[in-house]
Nucleic acid binder design. Structure first.
Lengths: 149, 149
DNA sequence: GCATCAGTCTACTAATTCCATATAGAGACT
DNA sequence: AGTCTCTATATGGAATTAGTAGACTGATGC
């Protein structure tokens, strides 16, 4: 499940991806244009910084910048950094694997085998879409909206 | 995310699918063979009954039975009945759609468009696997394990 | 070097959801 | 009648999520 934290974080990253490379954005600006509670976004951007996905600069003229070009950041990285495992259940996760204590032989646990398929399906999407590609989804829609008029 | 409720429910359904058609299983039996807290399973099977996925019979010789043949029950139905939306976020859900109040024009919200792709990927798996197919995953593994010896 | 801008850190609260248990009750069979 | 089994309600604790408050640190410009 994507929490508000994950949602806000993705929106902020898309926002950053829309700026000229290297140009920093203020938390206050990101927050107001995306309807995100400022203080909450503070914390979220902090985590994204810890995860190495953004860089920050303090003081006047400061703000947040993407740590890498938007083409090199996969959506899956962002989601994992903020919301943890992509897999719907821990015992089916690659990066956050944890055994569940109620099945004796997990090798043939049908729930797990089923959920591994789901995990793979999710990962196939999120690990192959870059932030740039994600932003492009919006632009495509914008274009459509424009042509409709 | 799949909660314990969903996990236990799936296990219980797989258990039922392994029985001779029409033969009822006791809650106590399902609980003990699958390491599920009995009282919790009571509640879960109650919800599955409300959702019309299982039938119950009281009294001696009673128990729970699948409402339909296992080939006709899709895993997605079970998950939805217990854990709600398949989509990672409400605004990307088909059956449980809910607008999120922080985006003005959801038509071109990149988070939503991205998550719709994820939702579709998940649904493609869960809406096309029957309970019978899910159980077969286990059997396949069992066979492998046997041959290994 | 002082003012101010802007991110950083710590801590806290409120709300929600999840997990589980307890207890009493109602239907069915013998 | 008595036992077996599901049913309904309600309660409570733990964990997670969402959001707030306030003091602090570092950078810039005058």
């Amino acid at each position: 499940m994507l929490t508000n934290k994950g949602k806000y974080g993705l929106k902020a990253m898309v926002h950053l991806a829309g700026l000229a490379p290297g140009q920093p954005a203020l938390v206050a600006d990101i927050a107001s244009t995306n309807n995100i509670p400022k203080k909450f976004l503070d914390a979220i951007l902090g985590e994204l910084r810890t995860a190495g996905l953004v860089h920050s600069k303090k003081g006047r003229g400061g703000g947040y910048v993407l740590a890498k070009p938007a083409v090199d950041i996969m959506v899956g990285e962002i989601v994992r950094a903020l919301d943890g495992p992509l897999a719907p259940i821990a015992c089916a996760s690659r990066k956050f694997y944890r055994r569940c204590d109620d099945c004796a032989f997990e090798k043939n646990c049908s729930v797990r085998l089923m959920m591994i398929e789901v995990r793979d399906a999710i990962a196939l999407v999120l690990e192959n879409r870059s932030l740039a590609a994600m932003r492009a989804l919006t632009d495509a829609q914008d274009a459509e909206l424009t042509y409709d008029i």
